[in-house]
Simulated scan of single mutants.
Amino acid sequence: MRYIIFDFDGTLADSTQLFMQAWNTFAKQFNYLPVTQEDLVSSRNLTIQQRAKKYEFPMHKIPIILPKVYQYFKAHMNEVALFDGIKEMLEALARNGYKIVIISSNAQENIELFLRQEGIDTVSQVLTSSRIFGKDTVIRKFMKQQNLTADQLLYVGDEVRDILACNKVSVPFAWVSWGLDGYELIEKENPRFVVHSPQELMSALKLEG
């Protein structure tokens, strides 16, 4: 294993509250239901499609709504922070020779601004998918460009769409419990690792902090 690929929102960045604010900001304009903190908890084991139905979200308008959400994210970047222990984990991975990549649906500019804001210099590359269900295409292209096989990668993420993308390209997946989706969604997709803290991920990789 040479590369550790991280999802961004909900895995490295504690941005759930900000995305909830953005969601609610545009709810009236695009005629869907706002959400509360309790909704986020109660819907952890619903798929994206089930959530869209529950909150009357127009999935066909995602290409219109997402850019507005990411613009909101950029304007409120100072409200987002790393999860506890993430920076130290990234530094430990880099010390042990792993190359760290981020693949996200968020805007590349947002992620790079955030990394500078947090003083993170251990990420070698930031890649983004213009489609929320298109990460397998990005992973496959990255593997081809770097001449990598699937067993040389580990993807770390919090959502079922991430592990579904990884399964399409046979890349092993580590699920983190502190993000958006619940374990019921993830379990049937057979993640390689299930971790509840950055320290547990390092332990799974047999690294010292």
Rank of each mutant, 00 (worst) to 15 (best):
residue 2 R to I: 08
residue 4 I to G: 07
residue 5 I to Q: 13
residue 7 D to F: 12
residue 7 D to E: 08
residue 10 G to C: 08
residue 11 T to F: 04
residue 18 L to Y: 06
residue 19 F to R: 09
residue 21 Q to A: 04
residue 23 W to I: 05
residue 25 T to H: 15
residue 25 T to Y: 13
residue 26 F to V: 04
residue 27 A to P: 09
residue 31 N to H: 14
residue 34 P to G: 11
residue 39 D to Q: 07
residue 39 D to S: 12
residue 42 S to D: 08
residue 43 S to A: 10
residue 44 R to M: 05
residue 44 R to N: 03
residue 47 T to D: 11
residue 49 Q to T: 02
residue 50 Q to M: 06
residue 50 Q to V: 00
residue 52 A to W: 01
residue 52 A to H: 02
residue 52 A to C: 05
residue 53 K to D: 11
residue 55 Y to T: 00
residue 56 E to I: 01
residue 60 H to I: 04
residue 61 K to Q: 15
residue 61 K to W: 04
residue 62 I to C: 00
residue 64 I to K: 14
residue 68 K to H: 09
residue 69 V to T: 13
residue 71 Q to G: 12
residue 72 Y to P: 04
residue 77 M to I: 14
residue 79 E to H: 12
residue 84 D to I: 06
residue 85 G to V: 05
residue 85 G to Q: 03
residue 86 I to S: 07
residue 89 M to L: 12
residue 90 L to D: 07
residue 95 R to G: 00
residue 96 N to M: 03
residue 98 Y to N: 12
residue 100 I to G: 01
residue 100 I to M: 13
residue 101 V to H: 08
residue 101 V to A: 03
residue 103 I to A: 07
residue 105 S to M: 02
residue 107 A to Q: 13
residue 108 Q to C: 10
residue 109 E to F: 11
residue 112 E to G: 04
residue 114 F to V: 09
residue 114 F to Q: 05
residue 116 R to F: 00
residue 117 Q to S: 12
residue 118 E to I: 02
residue 120 I to C: 10
residue 125 Q to I: 08
residue 126 V to S: 11
residue 128 T to Q: 13
residue 128 T to Y: 11
residue 130 S to N: 10
residue 133 F to A: 08
residue 135 K to A: 11
residue 137 T to D: 11
residue 138 V to I: 15
residue 140 R to P: 00
residue 141 K to P: 00
residue 141 K to Q: 15
residue 142 F to W: 13
residue 143 M to A: 13
residue 143 M to T: 03
residue 149 T to Y: 07
residue 150 A to F: 07
residue 152 Q to G: 10
residue 153 L to A: 09
residue 155 Y to P: 09
residue 156 V to S: 05
residue 156 V to K: 03
residue 156 V to F: 02
residue 160 V to T: 02
residue 161 R to F: 00
residue 164 L to F: 01
residue 164 L to R: 14
residue 170 S to Y: 13
residue 172 P to V: 02
residue 172 P to M: 03
residue 172 P to C: 04
residue 176 V to P: 10
residue 176 V to W: 09
residue 179 G to E: 07
residue 180 L to M: 03
residue 180 L to F: 14
residue 182 G to S: 00
residue 183 Y to I: 09
residue 184 E to L: 02
residue 187 E to Q: 14
residue 187 E to T: 06
residue 188 K to R: 14
residue 188 K to W: 02
residue 189 E to I: 01
residue 190 N to K: 15
residue 190 N to P: 04
residue 191 P to F: 04
residue 193 F to P: 06
residue 194 V to K: 14
residue 194 V to Q: 07
residue 195 V to W: 12
residue 195 V to A: 10
residue 196 H to S: 12
residue 196 H to T: 07
residue 198 P to H: 04
residue 201 L to M: 11
residue 202 M to V: 03
residue 202 M to N: 11
residue 203 S to T: 14
residue 203 S to A: 14
residue 207 L to N: 04
residue 208 E to W: 05
residue 209 G to M: 09
